[in-house]
């Protein structure tokens, strides 16, 4: 296990180095002078020069890469072209909102998807199984932004019972939750269906296993057999899928934030792309990438912890 963890960490380290190098070089791809592009043709030359200097653009390319790494290690991702605020502080303000959105939809997906899958598996062919089969397929194929637009149309425009846009303030939890509800549901919709399907399939397989029959033969209560003995084994293969999918979830969160004009990393990156605010785009994408890598690392370890068989093999 330790050996495996070490190998995995080394691999992750190289992935992060690669991503950062790529991001440091990204500005080279912008045609013309990126600073001039943002500040406009009329900006005074001294200002342009000083911004170029702050961004190390007056240095040779390898030095640019070096400074990006060195500063990032100290938590310095540059400054916003416009407000001159540090990118790190902008990201720190946005990040909690994205994290809350992602976690809320994941929780929603787990709380609804898993029981739905278990129920469908324990009552195969029943009416709920058939309804969920149709519903889940439509849910799986619905992208978060379509779900988001539909929810907006129904709850905010037609019935006007939910706020259409905005974030609310964390100091007013009730209002914050109200603003969170629709985006979280929009993001979770695909996952409810996906999880339900995954759990159903692996649950049906596990319920056929000899150890389930053996547990029943010992007179162990059905609820214990299904929710303890079968579910743990059925969930193991889904953990890996959910882990990989968390990355997709982060991506979806960006779309959803834009649709609902909700504060967060996605909104931050989106706005900065509009204004060609390069340091923020670079910093934002880096943080999203780091999150992605961290989540994958974490799922891998969780997966190894839950399944004792893998623990030994690796």
């Amino acid at each position: 296990m330790l050996d495996y963890a070490l190998r995995r960490l080394v691999m992750t380290f190289f992935v992060v180095v690669l991503i950062m190098t790529f991001l440091a070089l990204l500005i080279q791809l912008v045609p013309g002078d990126p600073v001039r592009l943002v500040l406009g043709a009329k900006a005074p030359e001294e200002l342009v020069q000083s911004v170029r200097h702050d961004m190390y653009l007056d240095k040779p390319v390898p030095a640019q890469v070096y400074y990006f790494f060195a500063n990032a290690l100290h938590g310095d991702l540059g400054v916003d072209f416009q407000s001159q605020r540090s990118v790190t502080s902008l990201i720190w303000t946005a990040l909690p909102h994205t994290a809350i959105l992602a976690l809320a939809s994941l929780a929603l997906a787990g709380l609804l998807g898993v029981p739905l899958g278990v129920y469908a598996a324990t009552h195969p062919g029943g009416w709920l199984d058939r309804v969920t089969a149709v519903a889940t397929i439509s849910l799986i194929t619905m992208p978060a932004y379509v779900a988001g637009l539909l929810l907006l149309l129904v709850f905010s425009v037609h019935w006007s019972i939910m706020p259409a846009t905005g974030t609310g303030n964390l100091s007013n939890p009730a209002d914050y939750l109200k603003h969170l509800a629709l985006p979280a549901i929009a993001l979770a919709v695909t996952w409810i269906g996906y999880l339900a399907r995954l759990v159903r399939t692996s649950m049906l397989e596990v319920l056929n296993e000899r150890y389930i029959m053996a547990a029943r033969s010992q007179g162990i209560r059905d609820r214990l057999v299904v929710y303890k003995y079968a579910l743990r084994n059925a969930v193991i293969p889904t953990i890996a899928v959910v882990g990989v999918g968390l990355g997709t979830l982060l991506g979806g969160a960006i779309f959803v934030e834009v649709i609902f004009a909700r504060a967060g990393l996605g909104m931050l990156i989106y706005n900065s792309i509009q204004t060609r605010n390069f340091p923020i785009v670079r910093g934002g994408v880096l943080v999203v990438a780091l999150l992605f890598v961290a989540v994958n690392l974490l799922t891998d370890f969780v997966y190894h912890m839950v399944d004792p068989r893998i623990r030994v093999v690796s």
Binding site: R210, Y211, A214, R232, I236, V306, D307
Partner: peptide
């Protein structure tokens, strides 16, 4: 089948 009669995760 004694190999598969016990639950592998407990």
């Amino acid at each position: 089948d004694p190999l598969t009669s016990l639950n592998p995760t407990f």
